[in-house]
Amino acid sequence: MATFADRKIEAFVGPRALGAADDLEAEIVRFIDAAEDSVDVAVQELDSAPIAEALIRKRLARKSVRLVLNHSYLMEDEPPPPNGAGIDRWAGDAADHKVNRDIFAALSRCQVEVRLDFNHAHIFHQKFVVRDLRLRSDGRWQAGGHPALLTGSANFTDTDTHTNLNHVLVFHHRDVAEEYGKEFAEIYGGEFGRGRIGDKPKTFDVGGVPVKVLFAPDHGPEAEIIKQLLKCPRGTRSGSRSSPSPGRRGSMMPYWSCTEPVDWSTGWWTAVSRVTIGRRRSGSSRAVSRYAFRVAARACASSITS
């Protein structure tokens, strides 16, 4: 584990099978185990038995546990052939997503409140847990224990925690956890996908590290990423240290440079036009540049204007 900002931020990288430092599944379990009051989970897919067991343990210890999943991971790709009689003919299968369904059944049986997303046409791609902090229906916060947020790129699956490259971040910070608590309340109330445009994204002071929280599709994160890339000081490269071997290490990263400070007050398009984008040390600069400008042009039309 690596901690930052006076232990308010923890950063984990996995999987160990590929030489990374951390066991993400174990860290997610540890995070859930430490809850003293409530656990709210929003995750695309859950097929990790240890994580499901941690949620059930919490529930059996009479804590409130709520969960939102993407519906599609409970479904079979093809309807099953009849087998047996009555409702049993559709149950007890051993095909696609059986583990997910077994976990869903076990959670339901133990009174974990599970809801499935309504973002039917698109993906419920969230991966976060809010611990010991909950926005109640009367608009007040219910807090207990040590409110914290866990999020990152990993689904709560065996594959994502033990096979694929992923990261997990933990924030021990009330305001950051509240932002996710509000999002959970919206999701749990049935607001998925493209809904109303909520508040502007907020930035919080987490022990001297500014942390800005955005949700898609509400906040159009693409524009934010472009903005952050354009802030990158001259000569540094995204994704990699300023290293002297651009041939290999730089090959997958576009190279950005700013010849002067970006003046955002002039608006997106003007600001972006003054910046050299996509000047790669090798390869096609035009392709990168055209792509970047297309993205930037779309960013102009999106909700973020500063």
């Binding site: 929003a42 973002n119 590290v209």
Partner: peptide, 13 residues
């Protein structure tokens, strides 16, 4: 799709 339709979260630290 991530930008326009999916439910996603993003942190800038």
């Amino acid at each position: 799709p991530a930008n326009l339709f999916n439910d996603e979260n993003l942190l800038v630290c």
